[in-house]
Design a protein around this nucleic acid. Structure first.
Lengths: 214, 214
DNA sequence: ATATTTTTGTACTGATTCGCAGAATTTATA
DNA sequence: TATAAATTCTGCGAATCAGTACAAAAATAT
């Protein structure tokens, strides 16, 4: 595909630049980030940014895409491929907290903390955000459905709605991390949530509760 | 306190202006909102805004404060004063959805959708956001604790962590509404969450709630 | 070696931004 | 009536912003 490279070669790696853009956008959000901020953070200058990625909104969307693609890979192996439901959810939240507290003023989640603001003014951002939410619903829904088949899910829990609640925990972790809540507190919450949504391998009582009585 | 009013009287009501500022900030977020936007929306001009509220950040903080104060009143009567836990949570989420879908491109929650972005750059915003999160944790925690005393809470649920999960549902409703998810879908999720966190009053077996529950 | 293609860097433009200065206006007080 | 106090309004200024034009640079192809 790219054997020739006709003109002057680039002096940067596009993925690296997107990674740095994710960092800057994640810290300041879309509107408060200037192209000078991005140019300074990436080391290249504005015209190069325009040439490679288009205008500011296009760059933001590509940063979102880059972030989501990475998230998707992580999710696939840490959640979908893990046979035990409680372990899978534990991996999900621990991985999320790792990312949310990656740098010192904890930025929370790039998309859940910065994309919603722009969603109203920029339909493309809105669609990308909704697409991620829907995909997470779908993936987690599949995971809960397979757990239900394996008998790991209490009969009262609907896989689809439970998946949404599992994602809700992700959203609150993101917001709370950025608001300044401590990682220890959030870790406790995550543990409790896992215990609620994925009752660990029932220790003694092999008898599942009857039907959906409450 | 204010019987005299020495100079020229104001031609606007401060609370009304703050209400309008909430609307504008909620739609565009802090950084993307210009003072001209605010001046146009409120009908008064920039120097009057500065004179009455200070600079842009001060106005945003006061808009947040106004919003939180109103939210606190609503919460107090619809959630804390309601004796039945399921009804209380139902009121909470229905009221939230009413607000999140108040105008056509659903803006979601003013604070949960627009404040987190600015939380890193503006410590005051961060503190106010965390203060709201903590207060909601505390109020809902009290509500779940009193429900536990009344026997309305399953024994496995810790009131404090369950309150955080109840707020998590609020956060996800806000984000999803702004991302474009339908109100019907969110209503279903809310109903399911209420059923999970507050198992409804057992239908047949007349478990008369003791004490002063009604 | 010359031409072509792509990237890089400097400089510029037009627009928007926030915040404020200063004069005019409206009220209460002396 | 005259003075003081507070608000309103026009307009300004300094800074920043996004996006681009243009020339120099670096590579390939002829």
């Amino acid at each position: 595909m790219t054997g020739k490279a006709r003109g002057r070669p680039r002096q940067f790696d596009a993925d690296t630049v997107l990674e740095q853009a994710v960092g800057v956008f994640s810290a300041r959000g879309f509107s408060a980030t200037s192209l000078d901020d991005l140019a300074h953070a990436t080391g290249l200058n504005r015209p190069s940014l325009y040439n490679a990625f288009g205008d500011k909104e296009a760059l933001y969307l590509q940063a979102l895409g880059h972030f989501v693609a990475r998230l998707r890979r992580t999710l696939e192996e840490a959640v979908m491929a893990e046979p035990d439901l409680a372990t899978a959810l534990g991996n999900l939240y621990r991985g999320a907290l790792d990312a949310y507290f990656a740098v010192d003023p904890a930025p929370g989640c790039f998309v859940f903390c910065t994309a919603p603001v722009e969603a109203l003014a920029h339909p493309a951002v809105r669609e990308l955000t909704l697409a991620l939410v829907n995909e997470l619903d779908r993936l987690l829904g599949e995971r809960f459905a397979s757990a239900k088949e394996a008998g790991q899910l209490p009969p009262g829990l609907d896989p689809v709605q439970t998946a949404k609640l599992a994602q809700a925990a992700l959203h609150t972790l993101a917001i709370r991390a950025r608001a300044g809540e401590s990682r220890a507190s959030l870790q406790r919450f995550a543990t409790h949530t896992v215990a609620l949504l994925a009752p660990s391998p029932v220790p003694r009582r092999a008898r599942a509760p009857r039907r959906r009585t409450r």
